[in-house]
């Protein structure tokens, strides 16, 4: 009985992981693939070659996506380290309220604030710009990165820093040699998390970027709805590359739970 259930579950897991990706690959290499054929009738690298062409906009969109995601990641982590430290290490008056305020964006969907942000940005000339898009991506990235660093600092012993100080490390060297190595795994998680959040962001980019900022996520969304299945398939695969890197990093360097947390970034 147990064995049968286990076999069934294992089969399900394999289907779960493999099934959605088979048609992506097949479609990306097909020129013509009509019903009811199980395999493409005419194979072709057309979709891939098309994506490489400058006119497809993939290269520009990749650069935009990368610039936005990298800036968002660096800023998020830089903000999340002190914020996570404050929440994880200290008790203070008004802490519950601060927790609520900083975590509110995880429960209240981005949709609720993005229209207002757009209105604000229109007034301050931030709408339709890369800077505006980066700022709006920061809301959720900082929140999730702070959550990660909060967890890190909840299990952190600040006396190590005091030990470093009395042994002669000034605050900067102390951060470099004592704090940084201790929180580094957490920083990796927070960074991966922020990067994926920004890389995958569609709606906020659409509203704030106003079509002027074209990221890979927007391109993919458009192809998904256009009906050009070969191109949608190929672009999906390109779009997943950061996720595969994350998978590799997490399986190599992080423990299961951290991996789960960083994977959450993929969902949002």
């Amino acid at each position: 009985m147990n064995r049968i259930i286990r076999w069934f579950a294992m089969t399900m897991i394999i289907i779960w992981v493999v099934a959605p990706f088979i048609p992506l690959w097949l479609w990306s290499f097909s020129l013509r693939w009509r019903f009811p054929n199980l395999l493409p009738e005419v194979w072709s690298p057309r979709a891939w070659l098309y994506l490489l062409k400058p006119s497809s906009g993939v290269l520009d969109a990749t650069i935009d996506s990368l610039v936005i995601a990298v800036v968002v990641t660096v800023v998020s982590v830089a903000i999340a380290i002190p914020a996570g430290r404050a929440l994880g290490l200290y008790r203070f008056r008004g802490k519950r309220f601060m927790e609520f305020l900083i975590l509110a964006p995880t429960i209240i969907p981005g949709l609720a604030s993005v229209f207002g942000v757009h209105g604000l940005f229109l007034r301050y000339h931030l709408a339709n710009s890369l800077v505006g898009v980066i700022l709006v991506h920061l809301i959720s990235s900082v929140t999730y990165a702070t959550m990660v660093m909060w967890g890190v600092f909840s299990n952190y012993n600040p006396e190590f820093e005091e030990q470093g100080r009395v042994l002669g490390a000034n605050p900067i060297r102390n951060f470099r040699y004592v704090t940084w190595p201790a929180i580094f795994p957490g920083i990796v998680v927070a960074a991966l998390f922020s990067f994926l959040l920004s890389w995958y962001q569609y709606l906020l980019t659409l509203i704030i970027g106003g079509g002027k900022v074209q990221t890979l996520a927007m391109l993919l969304f458009n192809f998904a709805r256009s009906g050009d299945r070969p191109v949608a398939g190929a672009l999906s695969i390109i779009f997943m590359i950061p996720a595969l890197i994350v998978l590799f990093v997490t399986s190599r360097y992080l423990t299961g739970e951290n991996a789960a947390v960083s994977g959450l970034g993929g969902g949002r």
Binding site: E162, L167, P181
Partner: peptide
């Protein structure tokens, strides 16, 4: 005088050897 230049070194109760 900040801790790092004061010359008073403390050994903490739980040793605090840097694990890495």
């Amino acid at each position: 005088i900040p801790a790092e230049r004061r010359g008073a070194v403390m050994v903490f109760q739980n040793y605090l050897l840097f694990p890495y």
